[in-house]
Simulated scan of single mutants.
Amino acid sequence: MPKGYVIGRAKVTDATKWAVYAARSSEVMKIYGGTPIVRGGQMTVAEGEGRARNIIIEFADFQSAKAYAASPEYAEARKLREGAGEIDLVVVEGA
């Protein structure tokens, strides 16, 4: 069965608020069996638009990744992020 991934690209404008969100979303990620593969770190834009903060979280399968992103626990974490920046999140099935 292919793994599932949550992929995010973010622009942080309030690091303090973002840190609170990141801590809570990390707790939620563990509940749903997620493992961070990429979390910030050095990056360069090869094509198109990029954002300074990038994340990839691996899950056992696509359904688990979707469950995390749609969970009430993650919805609570999202509220903590309000006013802290912008993020694009997608859930992707692995090969």
Rank of each mutant, 00 (worst) to 15 (best):
K66G: 06
V90W: 14
A95D: 12
A52R: 06
A84Y: 03
G40A: 10
I7K: 08
A69L: 07
D61W: 05
P36R: 10
V45G: 09
E76Q: 14
G41P: 05
V91G: 05
K3T: 14
R9L: 08
D14R: 02
P2S: 13
T16V: 09
G94Q: 13
S26R: 06
R24G: 00
R51E: 11
Y68N: 00
A84D: 02
K3I: 12
A22V: 01
D88K: 09
S26V: 04
W18S: 06
V90S: 15
E76C: 04
T44G: 11
A52D: 15
K3F: 13
P72D: 15
A70H: 15
S26G: 14
I57E: 03
S64A: 15
R78Y: 12
F62V: 11
G85M: 03
V90R: 12
E27K: 10
A10G: 14
Y32D: 01
Q63L: 11
T44Q: 12
L89P: 01
R53Q: 14
V90Y: 11
T13W: 01
D88I: 07
P36I: 11
V38A: 14
R24Q: 05
E58Y: 09
A22L: 02
G48Q: 01
I7C: 13
A69F: 04
T16Y: 07
L80H: 01
G8H: 04
N54I: 07
L89S: 06
V92K: 01
R39C: 07
A15N: 08
Y32T: 04
E93K: 14
E27T: 03
R24K: 13
G83C: 06
I31H: 05
I37P: 03
V6C: 11
A10S: 15
W18K: 03
K3V: 13
A67Q: 09
E86G: 09
V28T: 01
D14T: 04
V91E: 05
A52P: 11
Y74P: 00
R39E: 09
V6S: 03
K3M: 13
A84M: 02
E47S: 08
V28C: 06
A69W: 01
D14V: 00
E86F: 07
E86C: 07
Q63A: 15
V6D: 01
A77G: 02
A95F: 14
A84E: 02
S71M: 09
L89I: 15
V28H: 03
E58M: 10
G85H: 05
A60H: 04
G83F: 08
K79R: 14
G50E: 08
A77N: 02
E82G: 05
Y74W: 09
I7L: 14
A52H: 07
E93G: 12
A46M: 15
